[in-house]
């Protein structure tokens, strides 16, 4: 008990004024804005897919684009919430990506059903996954560095969501850049790797976010 009293006194003596961390909504807003700017600049440099205006009239393409954007926003908010020890007492926000992923799977299923006759598969395959991963590196580093300033008590989960958020920015970029109509290819090489990414984030979270 005496030790506790001494510790309390020593900690109290060290208590300089500290600036409280921003609210997770503000934090995620910053990340989303940063990622949106990165996406715009990248698309400006790499170019939009030539048939984008035409594709924006296809309901399943628009649904895929919108749900992917929502996944990105939800994972950003979830990562921001998970950076706080008590999830900023917004547990539902931390779980929000789960519902959106379920919606995304449903949309992909209907897009696959609507792909009749199936669009031809492109010549390339894993190159798409590699491009998305490379594109996602910067947002991933940025998000992890930002999260390390806080105190996550769910570091594996936080790491997983942070990597998914970064990867969804990459997937958005490729969706708007690549001239490709094959939903099979997109599922196989753009979205299924998200499972592996979430596992990598699980592992990375323990390495980088534990405090």
């Amino acid at each position: 008990m005496a030790n506790i009293d001494e510790l309390v006194e020593s900690l109290a003596r060290d208590a300089a004024p500290v600036k409280p961390a921003p609210h997770p909504l503000m934090l995620s807003l910053g990340w989303v804005a940063g990622a949106a700017a990165y996406l715009v600049v990248s698309l400006w440099l790499s170019g939009l897919r030539p048939d984008l205006m035409q594709k924006l009239h296809e309901p399943w393409f628009v649904a895929e684009l919108a749900s992917l954007a929502l996944i990105f926003i939800a994972t950003s908010l979830s990562a921001a919430v998970l950076a706080f020890p008590d999830l900023h007492q917004m547990r539902k926000a931390a779980l929000a990506p789960a519902g959106l992923f379920a919606l995304f799977v449903v949309i992909l299923f209907f897009a696959w059903r609507a792909d009749v006759p199936p669009a031809p598969l492109p010549m390339h395959s894993f190159e798409c996954t590699a491009s998305i991963a490379l594109f996602s590196l910067l947002p991933a580093v940025w998000t992890f560095l930002a999260m390390r300033r806080f105190a996550s008590t769910h570091y594996r989960w936080a790491g997983s969501v942070a990597l998914l958020s970064a990867f969804s920015v990459g997937a958005l970029w490729l969706l708007l850049h690549e001239l490709n109509d094959s939903i099979i290819h997109v599922i196989q090489w753009h979205y299924l790797p998200m499972l592996g990414i979430s596992l990598a984030g699980w592992w990375l979270g323990k390495r980088l976010l534990k405090w």
Binding site: L11, A15, V18, K19, A151, W211
Partner: peptide
């Protein structure tokens, strides 16, 4: 208590 001290900026 040390962890609370380190993480106090998150409150």
């Amino acid at each position: 208590l040390i962890s609370i001290h380190k993480a106090r900026h998150t409150y």
